[in-house]
Write a protein that binds this DNA or RNA. Sequence first.
DNA 1: TCTTGAACCTCTAGTGACTATAGGGATTAA
DNA 2: TTAATCCCTATAGTCACTAGAGGTTCAAGA
Lengths: 141, 141
Amino acid sequence: MEFSIGELARRTRVKVPTIRYYEQIGLLPSPPRTEGKQRRYEASDASRLNFIRHARELGFEVDAIRELLALSAKPNQPCADIDDIARRHIGEIDQRIAHLVSLRAELQRTVDECGRGRVCECRVIETLADSSHYHERLAAV
Amino acid sequence: MEFSIGELARRTRVKVPTIRYYEQIGLLPSPPRTEGKQRRYEASDASRLNFIRHARELGFEVDAIRELLALSAKPNQPCADIDDIARRHIGEIDQRIAHLVSLRAELQRTVDECGRGRVCECRVIETLADSSHYHERLAAV
DNA sequence: TCTTGAACCTCTAGTGACTATAGGGATTAA
DNA sequence: TTAATCCCTATAGTCACTAGAGGTTCAAGA
């Protein structure tokens, strides 16, 4: 019935140190221990951790996951809050995509214009050195 | 002619602590100081920092910028190396975009299916709880 | 029952690229 | 001269882990 941290790691594809880290930051509850102080988990822990893993894979930050977990624990509440978190997240992803697309275009243009000559005429260097170019900070990209 | 770190920050839109950090990691040279130990910069420092800022905005990592700076200091070398760095970087950007686009699609599908009912039947929560979903780790997104 | 070796434990420190804070000293304009 | 603003160093914090040291426990085979 109960299983070790290594078995939990195998079942969820989350690394052992990461599981301990999640416990430390309160994303996973502290499980019971054996007499030798080793953690023992049960099926519900694997479900919760799968939820966390999947949310991380979708790019949710730990704080957002905390919110989602808290909300999912109240099954009779309206789910509008959950929807909002997800929508907000989609908005963030859209911004990152837009930023990356424009960066890519500029790099491509730059590489295209570089005739594989010498550095003194290389467009990559020129483009980078030109302070008139402006992009938002890379914060979340 | 010479100016303070605050003035350099204004000219380059790079924050003061970031400038000091760049000096610490060797991306910017240590400038001369006043008798009171305050840093004094000149125009060429602003150019170099603009180069760095722009490269960061384009998503280059600090190590790649170090390479670019080293290459640009040898103006008679062929620029094939620089071109390679930029091309490698475009490949990485393409991967990030592709990943984000697929994440977005899954989130959007999920949100669309959520009828704004109750948490117990929310598709967002169900999707996250479903361990059968698989994505690559988010490492570089 | 004993032994072996894999798996487990805690604790600390490191990653990248900054950002924030504390507790001071320097410079500049009125 | 005084006040406001800027600057200094040093340390610690951010995020979400990852790595390592040094020691303990567990499960399986002999």
